[in-house]
Design a protein around this nucleic acid. Structure first.
Lengths: 224, 224
DNA sequence: TATAATCTTGACCACTTAGTCAAGTTTATG
DNA sequence: CATAAACTTGACTAAGTGGTCAAGATTATA
């Protein structure tokens, strides 16, 4: 008996030495691990399809530990969504009255495509939330996002007055840009099937972004 | 007792007279009702989120009756998907070598937008399936859809040889068209929030379609 | 009209799942 | 070093879900 106890202690001690971390470090890495695992699972099977057990397994933690950090599945889901939204809101800073539309819009489209290629799961979580009527983020959409796009629409209207771009409905242009970029993550099976590929390569994303920039800028009458 | 039995018989008789239908009629309408209810529920909450009880309630039938017509939830889901796919495959018939791209592509885009406005739930069911990796329809995507788009890509290449359209990646153009139209159903909460409206009107759809046609045709160098 | 085939439905069951809890371990603090 | 605070985890529970079934009702058939 004593031997076993000693062995257990030694094992514990070893783990403590190897992985000895402060409470803050423990908390941070646990949060990160769980959020990453949750994003991946929510992206693939949606909120209802996701089980805490599946997320726990992917995070390499027992299920009860998840509930220690996120009391409910809904809490965890909201935390994942927050991460997604912070990614989504960024990227419009180049769209200003002083900028040239060819550069600003081109950069914006390329940036959106880069985000899609880099964080496809974030895109899918966002898409799932939209499909389900956006119950958690309708506030964000109606406040922050609307205000941001109102502002950018004013910039585009200003460009139009200067003759730098056709007169058009800027909001619908944004819908097209968002849809056309995110489709490479959200509808990946369709894209890959039609392209006859198992998966998209970096080069595929570059081709897609280049054509989208070219077609949309030309279509909006932007001089390059 | 006898009175109650008689009353019950009279009631039954009445119902029979009012709603008396052949087995075939019964089967057809039951199928339709269930499929419609299922599409609506699957669209809003996805496969996992949908419960047979919720679908049954929406269809106005007891749950056990659903299982009489569709033995499992997966069967019912596949039936709904089939309906969706039949809608999706149609609409490309105008894209032929003999046609003019401005007319053919314009009609195609307008038609896609019309379908989106008319059957938003079908679009959402399709989107859900894509997000989940398209396990049920990967065969359809890799066979029928790929073949169809290969064919249409050849048509567009032919148009390019004739100088009727810029040289471009036709498949990516289709991705953009599909994404830009379906986003009005799949991402409706975002669209409505940014437009500051409770819901899209017919006029909104016309504006969206008109701008999309104008921008994409111009962007592809199609002479109108 | 009698028998068969089809349709209807309440009651039920086996199973999954989010969330709890208490006992134990590790780290912080005075 | 002792006590407190934070973290870990196996076992458990209550609620919800897909699917079954048998008994009854309606329609078809000969």
């Amino acid at each position: 008996m004593r031997g076993i106890v000693f062995l257990a202690r030694a094992k514990t001690r070893l783990r403590k030495v190897v992985a000895g971390r402060s409470h803050e470090e423990i908390r941070q890495t646990a949060h990160e691990d769980i959020l990453l695992a949750a994003e991946s699972v929510f992206a693939r099977v949606g909120f209802s399809g996701a089980t805490m057990a599946a997320i726990a397994e992917r995070a390499g933690l027992p299920k009860a530990n998840l509930h220690y950090y996120f009391s409910t599945k809904a809490d965890l889901y909201r935390a994942v969504l927050n991460h997604t939204l912070s990614l989504w809101l960024a990227g419009t800073s180049g769209i200003t009255k002083a900028a040239h539309p060819a550069q600003a819009l081109g950069d914006y489209i390329r940036d959106k495509m880069r985000l899609t290629a880099l964080y496809p799961d974030a895109s899918r979580v966002f898409a799932n939330e939209m499909l389900h009527g956006a119950p958690e983020i309708s506030g964000y959409l109606q406040q922050e996002l609307k205000a941001l796009i109102d502002e950018k629409a004013a910039v585009i209207a200003h460009w139009a007055e200067l003759g730098l771009i056709d007169v058009l409905h800027a909001r619908h242009l944004f819908f097209t840009i968002w849809a056309a970029t995110q489709t490479y993550a959200d509808f990946q099976p369709q894209v890959c099937a039609v392209l006859g590929k198992a998966e998209m390569t970096d080069e595929d994303y570059e081709i897609a972004a280049a054509q989208l920039v070219r077609v949309l800028l030309k279509g909006c009458g932007v001089q390059v």
